[in-house]
């Protein structure tokens, strides 16, 4: 799996809003970069739900959804 270069950034959509974050090479790494709990999010890569080990790059359209809420 290719690793992201130091200092490199990528654009993601977090809860419907665009955000620039430190580039990650996999879905799991991205969740850690965002400081989110794996248990509380789902991630779509190029329109499809993706598992943690799914590789990602700057070219991919990545959408992170927080799905665990109270109420």
């Amino acid at each position: 799996m290719p690793t992201a270069k130091p200092g490199e950034q990528m654009q993601v959509i977090l809860d419907g809003r665009k955000a620039k974050v430190k580039a990650a090479s996999s879905v799991g790494e991205l969740i850690s970069v965002l400081g989110l709990a794996k248990e509380e999010v789902l991630v779509k890569v190029n329109g499809k739900l993706a598992s943690d080990r799914t590789p990602i790059s700057k070219k991919d359209k990545v959408k992170v959804m927080r799905v665990i809420f109270g109420g």
């Binding site: 799991g28 794996k38 789902l42 890569v45 190029n46 499809k48 739900l49 993706a50 598992s51 943690d52 080990r53 799914t54 590789p55 990602i56 790059s57 991919d60």
Partner: peptide, 16 residues
């Protein structure tokens, strides 16, 4: 994009 495989069938995994 390459993908992570499903533990059951090896197709593209959608969730961990």
């Amino acid at each position: 994009m390459s993908f992570a495989p499903c533990s059951k069938c090896g197709k593209r995994a959608a969730i961990s």
